[in-house]
Design a protein around this nucleic acid. Structure first.
Length: 458
RNA sequence: GUGGUUGUAGCUCAGUUGGUUAGAGUGCCUGAUUGUGGUUCAGGAGGUCGCCGGUUCGAACCCGGUCUUCCACCCCA
């Protein structure tokens, strides 16, 4: 070994048991996606840069992985930017492709491109990796998987209701209890900004408000003031900082705060609609919670905003998010198509399930029976049986080498293979097989039909 | 992108103010046991001390850089 090989920062290999667990999660999510009427699509792992750039805010642009142009890219580089060592400016002249940053923007691009083939409202799901040039932390990777479900072409609030139900259905089927579905509405946030007369500082305002739980009321106010929002203005929405109680209790305080804001009142109306519907329909294990400080991933959301918090005992930030975006396809030339969707963070859900020990034990697909190899004549005899067992749906293997039985048994043991078949000269004479149960140690001599039935019933 | 932190055998980790040949547990291989695994016993293999450079008679240990891990900020699944 000349040099230890390695993989890039923030990426991971997945070994068999990890893949099994990841597949388990994906399968549960996929199952619900399909039950709710979503159809799968896939898009390329990289897009044209201009499809992605500028869609996630300034910070987002920085986190997009750019792909260097092929060939003699320096010859075509922006000479001025090059001389000035201006990395930001030179990028567009040396890179015209980039790895996708999420699944929503590529989907919007897809919808616009395929608009004539699609039947609206169009419901799609998509489970693929995305890439972000972020600095890794626990639960933060540079390559990770998102599982998205979106609907385009319907501005009905019943879609929001359906997505809350979908979240609940998925987490219930994963036996993950205590998940909190936090909901907010961009119109509420716009309402706040309007009431304090700072509509043009909406983003700064909401980014600061989002940190309430983390840095506290004083911290938020301080940050807002640093962004140029006056103390008097902030005072006008003082009640926001002490918002407590049930969904309806919070709504009634919001009614008070946002009385003068038309857009704010619209936001309240939408939240109430969703809440009333959910109250009527009920949720299995999750709970719906109004959180007016919720503002992440705000850039293209226009209505509902969702974020999923893991159960409180786990230290993990959001494991999912989503919202409504009224004009995402507008950027690509198709206006008046409203979209709404949600995303599941596969990698974080994995970490949560692992920590809470919620993965079923029998999750790793495994061979059920290993035939011991006694030599060529015996192997041929065994392989005939192996073939029949496989046809009967039983995962079966013959040990490939004629080595010491101890080694072969050990191999079965290490791989947790529950049964071993021994078939040597004696068995061949009687046209039988000795089946050994590796757990109990019991063994018996059976005909092929008996062997098959026995394994089938296990 | 800013600040901090981590790295020693396949894995989990010791390693004294810098001092011969860097250790343990576990795992691995061989044998006790040529048609019977897990337990036990005996033996064995396995290390560029993340990497590069510096200080020193001498570096796993001190210094600088770099990569990686995790944490905080930023942002986010």
């Amino acid at each position: 070994m000349a040099q230890k090989p390695s993989i890039p920062k923030g990426t991971r290999d997945f070994s068999p048991s990890e893949v099994a667990k990841r597949n388990y999660i994906v399968q549960k999510i996929q199952e619900q996606f399909q039950k709710f009427g979503f159809q799968p699509i896939e898009t390329p792992s990289f897009e044209n840069s201009d499809t992605l750039m500028g869609k996630y805010g300034e910070e987002g642009d920085r986190l997009i992985f750019k792909i260097l142009n092929s060939g003699d890219f320096l010859r075509k580089a922006d000479q001025k930017a090059y001389d000035a060592k201006d990395s930001l400016k030179i990028t567009s002249s040396i890179s015209e492709k980039a790895l996708r940053y999420d699944l929503t923007v590529p989907f919007a691009r897809y919808v616009v491109q395929h608009r004539n083939e699609l039947e609206f409202p169009f419901k799609r799901y998509q489970i693929q990796p995305v890439w972000r040039a972020d600095r890794p932390q626990k639960g933060r990777f540079r390559e990770f998987f998102q599982c998205d479900a979106d609907v385009v072409g319907s501005d009905s609030l019943w879609q929001e209701v359906e997505f809350v139900q979908l979240y609940d259905a998925v987490f219930s089927s994963l036996n993950l209890e205590g998940v909190s579905i936090k909901i907010n509405n961009r119109k509420i946030l716009s309402g706040f900004a309007e009431v304090i007369g700072e509509s043009d500082k909406l983003i700064d305002f909401t980014v600061a408000l989002d940190k309430l739980a983390k840095i506290g009321e004083d911290g938020v106010k301080k940050e807002m003031q640093e962004k140029g929002i006056s103390a008097e203005a902030i005072g006008k929405i003082q009640k926001v900082f002490g918002l407590k109680g049930t969904f309806s209790e919070k709504i009634s305080v919001l009614n008070d705060i946002l009385e003068t804001s038309e857009i704010g009142r619209k936001g309240i109306e939408e939240l109430e609609f969703v809440n009333n519907a959910i109250k009527n329909l009920g949720l299995e294990t999750a709970q719906l919670e109004l959180d007016v400080t919720l503002a992440r991933g705000l850039n293209y959301y226009t209505g509902a905003i969702f974020e999923i918090s893991a159960p409180e005992e786990v230290q993990m930030s959001s494991i999912g998010g989503g919202g409504r975006y009224d004009d995402l396809t507008g950027i690509f030339g198709l206006s008046d198509v409203s979209g709404v969707g949600i995303s599941f963070g596969l990698d974080r859900i994995y970490l949560v399930l692992e920590e809470l020990e919620l993965f079923p034990e029998t999750i790793t697909p495994n061979v059920k029976v290993l035939f011991i190899n006694f030599g060529n004549k015996e192997s041929l005899y065994c392989l005939k049986a192996v073939k029949q067992l496989r046809r009967a749906g039983i995962a079966t293997e013959l040990y490939p080498e004629e080595v010491k039985m101890k080694k072969q048994m050990n191999h079965a043991n290490k791989r947790d293979i529950p049964f071993v078949v021994l078939a040597g000269g004696e068995e061949m004479e009687q046209q039988k097989f000795t089946l050994k149960n590796m757990k109990s140690g019991e063994q018996e001599m059976l005909s092929l039909t008996e062997l098959q039935n026995r394994l089938k019933n296990e």
